[in-house]
Amino acid sequence: MTEFSAVYYDGRTSARTPVRVRALDHSLHLVGAELNIEVPFADVRVDARVGDTRRILSLPGGAQLHTDDHAALAALFPRANRLEAWVHELERRWGYALAALMLIAGAAWWSVTLGLPVVAKWVADFVPIDIEGRLGAETLYALDKSLCTRSALGADRQQALQKLLGTLTSGLNDRYPYHLEFRACGAVGPNAFALPGGAIVVTDALIKLAQNDPQIAAVLAHEIGHVRRRHGLRLALQSAGAAALIAALAGDAVSITGLAVILPTALLQNGYSREFENEADADAFRRLKAIGLSPKYFAEIMMRLEDYHAKSGGRQDGDTRDTATGKGALDYLSTHPATAERIARALANQ
């Protein structure tokens, strides 16, 4: 016959009454100071076990029994809370914890490398082009506020380059209103950015760095690839998704440190953008060939860019500190590790 010790709380006051509980055929018999009651099993509800925490039995009328005698309860209520009892069995053993850990790591890896990009692409397809354009306009506004000023390029030159873009995008039939935005962005150096929605920002430094128009065309072809594949929007969505995912996994930790979320998100973003670069490169080679230019121009401008960054240490402010050179080149390489590879691919695609 099962018997166990418990504390009885009547639910009306906070007084505690230690009791001895004896299991009869169809009921529990509680005996304590000034207490002697019998409760049918059918009226007793036992809570699900969590760790080795104290168990609570709810009795009719709002009273409770609290006990640490898990064995007695297991014997008396073998079928209670089957689902949560199963969860408890999983929580009890380190083996299952290890299995859970592996499952989480696998799921995180899968969703970050495969799931998120697919979902982001799917979501991006629902965003109309004019809304993408508005996002792009906002980004341009932010650039103008922080890094860039008016271009010093002559109107004739600007028009010629717009025409070059027109040649590159003719026959694409993708409804993007492609156009160039010329800017002088001192600290950025020679560069071009594809904004969501069809605008492509080109810095004066890039125009200066290029030896001929086909080299500029190569860069533009690459940026067109970014626009068409909605890389800007997708990158933003992927990063947001990754941040949400990490926050969900870290759960309790978020309140302790925001850093734990930011750090891996930044690292992931780096990885994502590398993949997008390769996609845009492949597009560029195809585009260039379509209008009768060789992808070797892409290789040439990439080499010039790399030269530029190696020489100036990534800086453009006339500061020729030799101590900074090593750091600058390293910096550049860490975000563009595959430049040599990209050049090789362009040459192979001639």
């Binding site: 969590v50 760790g51 929580e91 299952y96 859970a100 499952l103 799921a107 759960g251």
Partner: peptide
Amino acid sequence: FRIWIVNLALTILTLGIYSAWAKVRKKRY
């Protein structure tokens, strides 16, 4: 740790639906 990680795994397996149960178990603990 075991409660946390098992409940996290179950949350992932149920696409987040179990998270409510996970929260209650953690709080009860």
